[in-house]
Design a protein around this nucleic acid. Structure first.
Lengths: 229, 229
DNA sequence: CCCGAACAATCTGTCAGACAGTCTTGAAGG
DNA sequence: CCTTCAAGACTGTCTGACAGATTGTTCGGG
């Protein structure tokens, strides 16, 4: 074990990855709005990195589908057409349903316990005060994370999380629909109930239904007002 | 078409993309073997591009899961563990089954016709002479391409093709199993039959089964002899 | 006063060169 | 034969640079 004494634990994550993480976060949080041009020198100044590093990060995000490179005219935050949003939700429904099914058969007791904890926090968040959206989103993320991890297929988890990131910009919107947060919470309860009952078919069904409902709400919201105030 | 006379058609696809395509191709064709170190300067010389461009291409391939960056020790062609191969096939089965279902309900007459043509070529390839593997693989690619495109969900298509690329290195191996090519062809026929009959459930089922069979063969081959001669 | 063209300011795509830090390798020494 | 140390090889990253493309602007004409 010539391994050095675990001191240098975090051996500098590459700068490009740090930048990618920062930008990913900014896009998801709508600090950068869809369609916005990402000027490289700008990003350099903000992050303190050089252009090569920034560009490598952008290539990574491009492959993830978060940004789009317009040949010669720079990189912009990806704008999703309604059609693409539908496609995204369709794939999500399928994969998240599948993951939920796998969870119900493969998850360890520990993972099942964590799922319950996540559900509890989700309830608290949903019944909390005025500006509850961020807390609900955070709780949902933990719930989803636990669910997908417990499916026992890291690749599946990675693919799904990739899709989740791409719709993350929209999730906040969905929650603004009146009653959606409560409805959503009820659906999460259904998922956990089915999982607890060991009914994998039902677990998959409700998970699929959950995504479809979200898609429906999303369509309605978008149809009502495409732009934000 | 007001397309200009195909003179300035190719508005320079970015060099980084060309390199990414070259490397992707080389990896899929096993010109670069899994685990092989991709030395940047080497790639520069071979492609005539500069290091920044090569590195951007590598970042792209990394996000696609084809290569892996080992912090400080360079980039290598991704090596798949048996476990990861299983995971890959599990997700493929689910998604390709879904795509096949969608094809059977959404595909245009034209796309259905193309699928039949692809099947015909696949038959010819399968019953062709000694070195038929490349031809079979090419025919399969066309068949798959048609199938996934006809599912009418570009995102789904893109995700599946991403997975396909990641197992492409292994597909040649699968075909070496005695009788697998013929078995595989029969499964493709089943898929087309189900699609023709408009039986979406059956179409999904046989497509899933097809991937599972491929996975099984793959496991056997890998178990028999992990390295190639 | 509105419209189109020449012009200037930007910005991207790409390259060359450089340098510290880290790994690997091979040689020297126990 | 195994351990230790120094040379060489690469990566990760930065600076500086430059041609070409795009965009916004200004200026003259209708």
């Amino acid at each position: 074990m010539s391994q050095s004494p675990s001191l240098a634990v975090t051996r500098h994550p590459p700068i490009r990855d740090q930048i990618a993480a920062i930008l990913r976060n900014a896009i998801v949080n709508l600090d950068f709005t869809p369609g916005q041009v990402l000027v490289e020198r700008d990003l350099c100044e903000r992050t303190g990195a050089s252009r090569p590093s920034v560009r490598e990060a952008l290539r990574q995000l491009e492959a993830e589908g978060l940004v789009e490179s317009r040949n010669g005219r720079g990189t912009i935050v990806r704008v999703l057409t309604p059609r693409e949003v539908d496609d995204l939700y369709e794939v999500r429904a399928q994969l998240e349903g599948f993951a939920t099914r796998l969870f119900s058969t493969r998850a360890t007791p520990d993972q099942r316990r964590k799922l319950h904890e996540a559900l509890t926090e989700l309830e608290r968040a949903t019944t909390s005060g005025a500006d509850r959206s961020p807390r609900i989103l955070a709780a949902q993320n933990i719930f989803y994370g636990t669910l997908f991890e417990g499916a026992g297929n890291p690749l599946l988890e990675q693919v799904i999380q990739g899709l989740q990131v791409r719709v993350a910009q929209l999730r906040a919107t969905t929650l603004t629909a009146p009653g959606r947060a409560e409805q959503s919470y009820r659906e999460f309860v259904q998922i956990v109930d089915a999982v607890d009952a060991g009914d994998e078919a039902e677990a998959e069904r409700v998970a699929v239904e959950h995504v479809r409902n979200a898609a429906r709400v999303m369509s309605d919201v978008v149809a009502a007002g495409p732009a934000e105030g």
